[in-house]
Amino acid sequence: MQLRIEAVTKEYATVTAVNQVSFQIQSGEIFALLGPNGAGKSSIIRMLVGMTKPDAGSISVSYQDQTFQHVPRRLLGYLPEDRGLYGDKSVEKNLLFLAQLHGLGKTEALSRMEHWLEVFELTERRHDDLKQLSKGNQQKVQLIAAVLHQPALVILDEPFSGLDPINQEKVVEFLKQLKQNGMTVILSAHQMAMVEKLADRMVLMAKGEVVLAGTLAEIRQQAQPEVQIQLSSKTPLPIDWLRSLDAVTAVELPQPEQAVLTLDQDAEVGPVLQQLLGRIEPEQIAMQKPDLHQLYLNAMSRHQRQTPQEAAA
């Protein structure tokens, strides 16, 4: 399966939710859509699912010598952002109903259900009404519902939201297993640490546009000119002064005595270090490789600073 999104634009009454977005997704990869709320991720997902159509541009889905304008239902497993199941029915009844709608026989559905309930440690709760489960467990049931029929493509809109760190790790393992089973996975998320572990390729979006795209290494390369300096001192750092430095584009303060400075991509590191050493007595100073979270923040901040002319260019 291959998905090709070309110059897709989607407009609602007063907003352009997606603006000239293009990317491709290859078969068997985990692809992440990243971006803040309102970036256009869910709008793209809804167009992929076929709920809405692009106002301009095109979507093509190739599968076994056939091409479609959206992902055909029989190939799709979907976890929407706006999700829920029947609270007054048991876990088993909910899953069986959805599996049968996907065309699975009862025996086959029950056997697959048992496997996934085991994976998510929900076997004991299978006869409980869904509303009796915690929000996290309900979400796990919904994840199972999305993959019970072993679709070729799984689209998961915010699969980590509402989950505690332990369950987030479980979902990471779950997604890795889907990949091993040969499924293509598209996910949207805010949890950069999770995405960093999982995604083969990704796009970072802001205000309906693609800001960065590629593998994590490619994204690092694209954003590499931005150097980060990790700084720690015995006394609280002068945050306002750090922010006022011309070459510094972002300052993160994990603690009052620690800071991570992101430099403008055109800045030279030497003068900045001299300025820092002239004002602060650092306990430790080091250059660091930005993680996805940092790259994401930098990209967002750069995108927000862009003038409309730059954006247009």
Partner: peptide
């Protein structure tokens, strides 16, 4: 209200 609708849309017309 229970937000099942969008999930069902991905399965049924």
């Amino acid at each position: 209200q229970q937000r099942v609708t969008e999930q069902l849309y991905a399965i049924l017309t």
